[in-house]
Design a protein around this nucleic acid. Structure first.
Lengths: 217, 217
DNA sequence: AATAATTTTTAGTTTTGTCTAAATTTATTT
DNA sequence: AAATAAATTTAGACAAAACTAAAAATTATT
């Protein structure tokens, strides 16, 4: 698999998690920052290699082979993120782009050794599950903070959109994975929340709350 | 710099260390496993980017800019090798090909953090010096075991050709970096050596001795 | 159900890095 | 010094992966 083919497979995988039907050309083009016509070309090649099922105008789905390949790329991506944060002291907003490069290093042995070196972590620094060497991963029963009812106590599990600016916002307010939060007010007008964390009250917009995955405790 | 450009710069650097005059097209083609005509094309591009000086039919030399770029690639290669051997328990004959891939990961910050994580090593697992972030590296006053006189005591410093089969040969005979060796006989006919190591006598061919760098003690 | 709007595909180019084969330059030999 | 051999460069072609613009198919709207 080429660098580019791997990126397509990965993007199709991520889109599949959100909508499990056929993934359409434009959605892929949007994610990969290319044009629909380029996607059509690549998708034909992936179909020839039996990594996706594809019928003209009907979108694509991953085959079993494609699904496994995608999970292995995600595995590499997330393990490298753990390495960068835990061993090289990067912050969680810095690691995504680097992991995008590192995920293409081709060696099963390397990634399995890295997994072992890191102590077989189950989640990456953003709270996303890491597939094991067979593609198995834990399922986190998480929901968005914006969907949680009043007066509930929750624990922060991960983020939906892991853009650097959002992650930096969280750092600034000392919100990290494992932080415990209580929702003490919900403003009806703009759905903003007042939360209690480490004894401090913080006001949080609905947009922020809609980007933060939590677990009710 | 593209992946391919980096490989050319690195190869030209390695050839420059052996013969400091202009590096000819065929030598580069041999190392990179391509054809002379491809080399000509690439060398023109590198000259446009001012990474090499090039005049038709006269071979190439690295510019200051090219030399620095080459050292940074070598730095990455050798630091990743140390990481693989020291942290992930790879053997010294396994790491070269993996480091060939890892050396192209583009991040100054990553490589400097890795350097720190590894304790700023001065040499890679084969005894080759690692350039620091400014391109500086130690110079090892080493000579080939085949050139050392009779009855001298030497310490093993590194290898010339680091092919897996040679490295495995060394492992089999328990010769590693730092091993102390005494030359107790030199056969005039085939220049093979009898050496004393850890109290044991071993017979070594001239070809092996010509691949092993040592320092007289 | 016909038309409009959108999405997807096709056709034809472009760029990067490679190749082969032919032409040119340099080196070697007689 | 001329002839031959070897090395190097040029010219033209190709594959991968992208693009633009136009055509075709699907979906939405009236």
């Amino acid at each position: 698999m080429t660098y580019s083919e791997e990126n397509y497979i990965k993007v199709i995988y991520h889109l599949s998690l959100v909508s499990p039907k056929g993934i359409n050309t434009n959605a892929i083009a949007g994610m990969i920052e290319s044009k629909a016509s380029s996607v059509t070309d690549m998708v034909k090649k992936l179909a020839e290699k039996e990594l996706v099922d594809y019928q003209k105008y009907q979108g694509v789905t991953l085959t079993q082979k494609g699904l496994h390949a995608a999970k292995m790329i995600v595995r590499k991506h997330r393990l490298w993120e753990v390495f960068l944060v835990e061993k090289l002291d990067f912050t969680w907003d810095e690691v995504h782009d680097l992991a995008e490069e590192l995920e293409h290093i081709k060696s099963e042995k390397l990634i399995n050794r890295l997994d072992e070196f890191l102590g077989f972590p189950k989640e990456d620094p953003h709270g996303d599950p890491i597939p094991d060497r067979y593609g198995q991963m834990i399922k986190v029963e998480k929901q968005l903070l914006s969907e949680v009812g009043l007066n509930k106590k929750v624990m922060c599990l991960g983020v939906k959109d892991s853009s650097p600016s959002f992650l930096q916002y969280l750092d600034k307010h000392q919100i990290s994975l494992g932080s415990e939060i209580e929702i003490i007010n919900k403003e009806a007008f703009d759905m903003s929340l007042t939360i209690l964390m480490n004894g401090k009250e913080i006001l949080i917009s609905n947009k922020i709350a809609g980007n933060l995955f939590v677990k009710v405790m």
